[in-house]
Structure formats: structure tokens, C-alpha cells
Design a protein around this nucleic acid. Structure first.
Length: 523
DNA sequence: TTAGGGTTAG
């Protein structure tokens, strides 16, 4: 009872005072720790139980497994299962599948899944799909879904929610719509979790109109549904609608949480609503919420974006917690965007703090060097660039991808692995030449010019689409933020090719048309 | 009286 009510200390005290501890009491204690998020204690209780010569039951093993994400421990528990002749218990094997997946061991998962043969149930299939997704193997996950549709059990709400979330993360609109259609046929669109996942998927895939339609038709909504709708509008730069949904949420009686306020504040930031942003930030305490770094970062973004650098500086000084790397990076971005940013003293502080906190993150070096470039401090630009090359700087996994009728095409900067590489580069060279001729980039410094014309992943993706004859609008996705130079290049390209280009980065949507971007918001 | 798979931000 105590464990179920979250009073794990009281539960542990009662357990300690038990004269006789049988299998069930150990099981209850282990699962109590697990359910309350104390995975280490769950594992140590399990080990203690073994040392006390108590035979581990499947209940204890399953509870222990559900909090395990360590491959060595996972293998040891698996050996224990085999030793005690417990393989064949479907719940236990499913727990093993999900632990292997959490440990990043999809090979072991596949091996076990094959051995389970006829015993597999819906949970086993769902565990495999979410395992692929957790490990970033999106294409394998989607292949597995189609395999399940033809060879596996009927998909349930768990499957749909998992798969829709995967579609959302790669903005695979077509696959998401197919899954939606399957969901309707399975009468699962009334499930609140599936509905929320649909709202999120459409919001992240550029169809905010569909997201809204699904949201409006939902019979019941939870905090996930409201948050997905609010963040969806914020991501699309529609601040007013995001705030309208936020007001409706409160009228509906749904209490906002920390995630809600990230959505609300980022909506205010994109819409330039400084007063409203401050008001909502202050109102968090009325809901019993303590602002986290993300909320402080949003406020700094709001102040920085509207050029209020002095207010931004005051806000940072008054922060009750020590600013972290996220905060300082937001400051640098704000300074770079502002006309007076280069004159402001805070960008120097921000750059020093960033290099101290994250000396190996190349993003910081790029931001700092471009600020030096704006100030014409070429020696410092060169120094920062050299530091970036010589330090053990981690390579960013910056990827862009595009979905066409023949599947997903993924690019990294300077990529030459695509089968049509020659054709793609030829197209990109033509574009670059046109940009040179048409826009005569004489007034741009060399540094920016090089960046603007380099082979970043999103430019390779757009060049690839242009090698195909289809005339549909171009939709490119990127897992990192779009840099300012690529942003400018996309403005040029949209004018040259006379086509709409939508680029979704980790943060929001950018719609380019006729040489302009709808949001005017770049890094 | 104990057990496995699901959705939201950054």
C-alpha cells in the first residue's frame, strides 16, 4: 500500500521490520522501488534477496528487469532465468526484450524474439518496435511495422502510439497518415493516447490543420493532448492560436504542467509577445510550478529576440540558479541576432562561460566565431576556428532527410554516399553558380560566403529533390537547428527555382517562398 | 499480496 501511494520510505521501513520475509514481500519491495523510480534500490534489493538464499520468482525478476538498462546486468539476469528454467514465461521474456532494447542491444532482442517463436504476443511485437525507435533505427522500426501488419497480431493502441511517435520524430507524414488510416479501421482513434500521438505527429509533420482537426474531434483529452497542440502551434509560429488553446485548456479544467509552459513561452517568443511571456512566466508559481532551465531559456529568448539586451542581462543576474550552457547559448544567439549584440558586453561573458562549460561542443565555436566576424575581428575568428579544429571537438551528427515516394533519403554535410551523388552535386553546383551570378555576393565577408556556398546536409537534400522531376513542394527535415547562412541560401534557392521549400529543424518550421522566409527567424 | 509494451518540451 505504502509503495503504491508513493511512500517508498514508509514501505521500506515496514519491510525492514518484518520478522519473516517471504518471496512475496521481497517481490513487493523490489517492484515498489521500481515503480517509484528507485532503480538502483530495486536492483540492490534483488541482489540482497539472492544473498539471503531466497529463490527468485518471475515476479521479482520482471520488476528488476523493468528498471535495468545495463547490458552486463541484463545478461546476468538472463542467465539466471535460463539457470532456473524460467524461459517460456512470456511476461518475463517480454521484460527481457525491453531491457535488452534499453541497453541498446537490438541484436540480442532479435535473437530472443526469434527464439520466442509461437509464444510472442502483442507486447513482444510492441517491445521490438519501441526498441528500434529508442535506438534511432527508424527505418527498421517502420519495416517491422509493415511486417507486423502482414504477419503479426492485430495492432493495439500501444502499437499505434509508439509508431506515430516514431513518424513524428522523422516527420514522416505519408507513413503517419497510413498508420492513422489503420487506426481508424481498428476503431482506435478514440484512445486518448493515440489521439495525442496523432496531434503531435501532424503538428511535427507540417500539417497543423490536420493536428487541429484531430484535436477538436477528441472525446477526452489529457495533458499530452493539450501540450501537443500548444507546442504544435508554437512550432508553426502561430503564437495567438497557441495561447488560445492554453486558455481553453484552463477553462476545460486541465492543470498546465512544466511542458505546457515551455510551449506557451516559446509561442510568446516566436510571436514577439514580451509582456505576455513575462506574465505567463510569473504565473507558473500560481500553478505550483518551479521554472526549469528551459523556461529561463525561453524568457531570455523572448527578451533577446525583441532586442531587449539590457533586460536580458538583468534577468540573468536575478536568476536563482546558476545559468547553464543552454542559457549562455541562447544569449549568444540573441546577441548575434541583435544589431547591438556585438556592442553588448554580455556576449563576451557568454562565450567565456560556454567554452568553460562545454569546451568540446563545436556549435559554441561556430557561434563565437561568427560573432567575431560581425565585429570584423578576423584574428579572433581565425583563432576560434583553429581552436575548433585542434581541440578534441565532438563531431555533430547533423543530418537532413527527405521522404519521397521511394523512401527516406538521408544526408550529412559533404555526403557522397548517396547512389546519385554525382547528379546531386552537379545540381548543387548549378544552384551555387546561379546564387553567385544573380546575387553578386560582393558585400558579404569571405567567412559567410564560404558557409553560404558549402555543402551542408540540407542543401544536399534540396539539390537531391531538384534532380527528380516531381513538382511537389519540397519538404526537408533537419535534426539540428538551421544555421543562419543556410537560411539565407534557402531564401536565394526558393527564388531561383520558384518553388515552395519547407524546412523543419529541431526547433520549428521555416517556409521559404520567392526569396523570403515566413518566420524571419534564424540562428 | 507482487509482473511486461504507449503519447508532450529542450
Amino acid at each position: 500500500m505504502y509503495a503504491k501511494c508513493g511512500a517508498i520510505d514508509a514501505a521500506a521501513k515496514v519491510f525492514d521490520h518484518l520478522h519473516v520475509k517471504d518471496q512475496v514481500s521481497w517481490n513487493t519491495m523490489i517492484s515498489g522501488f521500481d515503480q517509484n523510480g528507485f532503480s538502483k534500490q530495486s536492483l540492490s534489493s534483488f541482489c540482497l534477496m539472492l544473498r539471503n538464499d531466497i529463490q527468485p520468482s518471475n515476479y521479482a525478476i520482471i520488476s528488476t528487469l523493468s528498471s535495468l538498462s545495463d547490458i552486463v546486468m541484463c545478461r546476468q539476469v538472463h542467465n539466471l532465468v535460463l539457470k532456473h528454467g524460467m524461459s517460456g514465461d512470456i511476461v518475463l521474456e517480454n521484460a527481457l526484450l525491453s531491457s535488452y532494447a534499453k541497453s541498446g542491444e537490438m541484436d540480442s532482442c532479435e535473437c530472443l524474439f526469434r527464439k520466442m517463436a509461437d509464444r510472442r504476443n502483442g507486447v513482444s511485437w510492441n517491445s521490438m518496435i519501441s526498441g528500434y525507435i529508442q535506438n534511432g533505427l527508424m527505418q527498421k522500426a517502420m519495416d517491422f511495422v509493415w511486417f507486423m501488419i502482414h504477419n503479426g497480431p492485430k495492432m493495439d493502441g500501444f502499437t499505434f502510439a509508439t509508431v506515430l511517435s516514431a513518424c513524428a520524430s522523422i516527420a514522416a507524414l505519408d507513413s503517419g497518415m497510413e498508420i492513422h488510416a489503420f487506426g481508424i479501421r481498428s476503431h482506435l482513434e478514440t484512445d486518448v493516447v493515440v489521439g495525442s500521438a496523432l496531434v503531435d505527429m501532424y503538428g511535427k509533420s507540417g500539417r497543423i490543420d490536420y493536428a487541429s482537426r484531430v484535436f477538436e474531434s477528441m472525446n477526452s483529452r489529457n495533458e499530452f493532448s493539450w501540450n501537443s497542440m500548444i507546442s504544435g502551434y508554437a512550432r508553426h509560429g502561430n503564437g495567438d492560436k497557441a495561447l488560445k488553446v492554453f486558455r481553453e485548456m484552463q477553462q476545460w479544467g486541465q492543470e498546465p504542467d512544466l511542458v505546457t509552459f515551455v510551449g506557451v513561452l516559446s509561442a510568446c517568443s516566436h510571436a514577439g509577445l514580451v509582456e505576455e511571456g513575462s506574465k505567463y512566466f510569473e504565473s507558473m508559481k500560481n500553478h505550483g510550478l518551479v521554472p526549469q532551465m528551459e523556461h529561463y531559456s525561453c524568457m531570455i529568448d523572448i527578451l533577446g529576440r525583441t532586442g531587449k539586451l539590457n533586460e536580458m542581462e538583468d534577468f540573468i543576474k536575478k536568476m536563482p540558479v546558476r545559468p547553464n550552457n543552454l542559457i549562455w547559448r541562447t544569449v549568444l544567439v540573441a546577441c548575434r541576432r541583435s544589431k547591438d549584440g556585438a556592442k553588448s558586453g554580455i556576449w563576451k561573458q557568454a562565450s567565456e562561460m560556454l567554452l568553460e562549460l562545454e569546451p568540446e561542443n563545436p556549435v559554441n565555436y561556430v557561434l563565437i566565431s561568427s560573432m567575431y566576424a560581425y565585429r570584423g575581428r578576423w584574428e579572433d575568428v581565425a583563432k576560434t576556428r583553429t581552436a575548433m579544429r585542434t581541440l578534441p571537438v565532438k563531431k555533430e551528427a547533423g543530418r537532413s532527410w527527405v521522404t519521397l515516394h521511394d523512401g527516406l533519403h538521408v544526408f550529412v554535410a559533404g555526403d557522397r554516399s548517396h547512389p546519385n551523388t554525382e547528379e546531386i552535386y552537379a545540381k548543387l553546383h548549378v544552384l551555387i553558380q546561379k546564387i553567385r551570378d544573380e546575387f553578386a555576393l560582393y558585400d558579404i565577408d569571405m567567412e559567410t560566403k564560404e558557409e553560404l556556398l558549402s555543402y551542408h546536409s540540407e542543401k544536399l537534400a534540396v539539390a537531391f529533390v531538384l534532380t527528380r522531376s516531381c513538382r511537389v513542394p519540397i519538404r526537408i527535415m533537419k535534426n539540428l537547428r538551421v544555421c543562419g547562412d543556410c537560411h539565407s541560401a534557402f531564401c536565394y534557392i526558393s527564388k531561383i527555382v520558384g518553388r515552395k521549400i519547407t524546412l523543419r529543424d529541431c526547433n520549428r518550421f521555416h517556409h521559404f517562398e520567392n526569396g523570403k522566409c515566413s518566420c524571419g527567424d534564424f540562428w
